[in-house]
């Protein structure tokens, strides 16, 4: 059974459709890369999967032991965070908030989980630093650690490497790959064809033509040929 099933989904804003008839499934442990032009609706799709906005029609369902609130999310950076006074520790710990219900404080196991994920991301020495003073790559690691606190099963990453320099981008991709190897399902939006083909197991390409399938199928499909062909030019 699939962890995430999207059925005949149509999405958009204020009744205006961006994308329709979208169907695909994500099974545990896979690495799905979502490709497409700017403005093709990748972020909108992710927001719909997370329940941040409702679909115009169709449905998103979770299964295989995954609950919708247990999906870790790495959003595209928002403006508010730029001058937010908060330490790395405070931010990562806030990823556990979903488990708290109405309880006003964090339990010891939640603090342990946060510490564990900080270590996993290799940012232990940044623990008491202020988020706004970190480099772009360090900030993304913090947000990734926070997302890991919210999930053990699935991560949704919206352009996790945008704005990072090539070296840090490579490190970020390897980090995500390790998480995937550890058994976390990854769904990632990316512009980076090369990385997608290197790490992903499945590709979802949205735009004028929609493609969903394994990486192999994608390379053989016309959508993939057109895209990779363009890359080479």
């Amino acid at each position: 059974m699939a962890q995430l099933s999207v059925n005949n989904l149509s999405l958009g804003y204020d009744g205006k459709e961006i994308l329709n008839g979208l169907s695909f499934q994500v099974t545990a442990g896979s690495y799905l890369c979502i490709l497409g032009e700017n403005g093709s609706g990748k972020s909108t799709l992710m927001r719909t999967i997370l329940g941040l906005q409702s679909p115009l029609s169709g449905e998103v369902s979770t299964g295989d032991g995954l609950i919708q609130n247990e999906i870790g999310y790495l959003p595209q950076q928002t403006a508010v965070q730029k001058d937010f006074p908060a330490t790395v520790w405070e931010i990562v710990l806030s990823g556990c908030q979903g488990r708290c219900g109405l309880r006003p404080f964090y339990r010891r196991e939640e603090k342990q989980l946060a510490a564990e994920n900080i270590r996993r991301m290799g940012i232990t020495e940044l623990r008491n630093r202020c988020y706004r003073e970190l480099s772009g790559g360090q900030q993304q690691r913090v947000l990734l650690a926070r997302a890991l606190c919210a999930t053990r099963k699935m991560l949704l990453l919206d352009e996790p490497v945008s704005g990072l320099d090539p070296k840090v981008t490579g490190e970020m991709y390897r980090l995500i790959d390790t998480l995937n190897k550890d058994g976390i399902t990854v769904i990632m939006i990316s512009h980076d064809m090369e990385a997608a083909l290197r790490y992903a197991t499945h590709i979802l390409h949205i735009g004028k033509t929609v493609f969903f399938g394994t990486k192999q199928q994608y390379l053989e499909s016309s959508a993939g040929k057109a895209f990779t062909g363009k890359e080479e030019m």
């Binding site: 329940g51 919708q68 247990e70 999310y73 959003p75 965070q81 806030s94 908030q97 979903g98 919210a150």
Partner: peptide, 14 residues
């Protein structure tokens, strides 16, 4: 704190 820092993330985690 959670909602102020990142409303979307907060919503996504329920």
């Amino acid at each position: 704190f959670c909602v102020t820092f990142d409303e979307n993330f907060a919503r996504a985690t329920g």
